[in-house]
């Protein structure tokens, strides 16, 4: 086989390996549902009230001549966007709602970054919305399919690439953050008082959110602990990308990544909740559901039946990679 063919085959295997439609549909419902609830109270219409002196368009908006639209239009746009997120979560008119969610989300989530500073807490949400707009994430477990009537859905590469794309982009976020620190500061970033001072500074109301606990100050009192946590953080960010290559390490790395964002929020303040919402995309919800059902089945049979044949429970003893055809379907 030619080298080029090998690369093509590897590329296709990575992105388009056949997978269950259930996984992507569950990820779509969880992600859009959480995003809908998270952004529902947020009011974008206040941005046009900022004085023109605050308007400092970032490069993307400047290059594309994207304007700041009036508050009345923003009011309509944010309603349309939030409704589209809700519709996408339940899978109603999914194709159209996902496209609207992606276009509206790119504008609305990008807008605040034109006022003073470009922050980075919601870039992954924009990517997730764009990916959903191109995906077939509502082929099962959606109002659309319920209205069309049930039909068998075979495993397909269509249901793999959106999940893998989120993995790759999440890994690149971590990798970018890690390499930025190494590029600008080297290992001194960890082996100095830098992190200790950052932790202390976080308690002076300098971020978009205040730390949720005072543990950061306790850590800052111990120089060795600050350095150990800084080194660990640097390691997590730089090597998160290993998750792309090791299926076995992936769930552990993902869990560490989620704890990492929880830690930043708790000890330093920045509101990285949108990253946690994006983390919902990476969880294999179909397996979680399968295990929950198996557990419920075991509890029910143990409670109701005095004699249970072992075969009744055997196939629920562990979650398979793919749910067997005999299992309850959506």
């Amino acid at each position: 086989m030619k080298t080029r063919d090998k690369y093509v085959e590897t590329w296709n295997r990575f992105w388009f390996e056949p997978a269950s439609a259930l996984r992507l549909a569950s990820a779509r419902a969880m992600f859009c549902g959480a995003a809908f609830l998270f952004y529902l109270p947020y009011d974008f219409t206040e941005w046009p009230s900022a004085a023109p002196t605050f308007w400092m368009p970032m490069r993307t908006f400047e290059l594309l001549h994207v304007p700041l639209i009036p508050a009345e239009w923003l009011f309509v746009l944010q309603i349309v966007w939030k409704v589209s997120l809700g519709l996408c979560a339940i899978g109603l008119w999914t194709r159209a709602s996902a496209i609207v969610a992606a276009a509206g989300g790119t504008y609305l989530l990008g807008l605040p970054h034109n006022f003073g500073a470009t922050q980075h807490y919601d870039t992954l949400v924009v990517f997730a919305l764009v990916i959903l707009a191109f995906s077939r994430a509502a082929d099962v477990r959606s109002v659309d399919t319920a209205l069309r009537g049930r039909r068998a859905i075979a495993d397909d590469g269509e249901y793999t690439w959106p999940i893998r794309a989120m993995w790759v982009l999440t890994a690149l976020v971590f990798f970018g953050a890690g390499t930025s620190k190494l590029r600008h500061s080297g290992l001194e970033w960890a082996f100095s008082d830098n992190f200790r001072l950052l932790l202390m500074r976080a308690y002076y109301h300098v971020s978009d959110g205040d730390p949720l606990t005072r543990i950061g100050l306790e850590i800052a009192k111990r120089s060795w602990l600050s350095q150990a946590i800084a080194l660990t953080s640097l390691g997590i960010e730089t090597f998160y990308i290993v998750a792309l290559f090791s299926r076995r390490a992936r769930p552990y790395i993902a869990a560490i990544g989620i704890l990492f964002f929880v830690g930043i929020r708790a000890f330093m303040g920045p509101t990285f909740e949108p990253y946690l919402i994006c983390g919902l995309f990476l969880v294999p919800w179909h397996r979680v559901e399968y295990r929950a059902r198996a557990w419920a089945h075991r509890v029910a049979t143990a409670t109701n039946a005095s004699v249970i044949h072992p075969d009744d429970c055997r196939h629920y003893s562990s979650a398979p990679d793919r749910i067997p055809r005999s299992a309850p379907t959506p």
Binding site: M58, R59, T60, T106, G110, H113, T118, Q119, H120, T123, V126, F127, V173, G176, A177, T179, S180, K181, R183, H184, S185, E188, W189, S192, D193, N194, L197, L198, R201, P270
Partner: peptide, 17 residues
């Protein structure tokens, strides 16, 4: 940085003061 793409430079400098 070309939002939404980024090199994620937050906290990448060294704080000495």
């Amino acid at each position: 940085e070309h939002w939404p793409f980024s090199q994620y430079p937050m906290f990448s400098g060294i704080w000495r003061a």
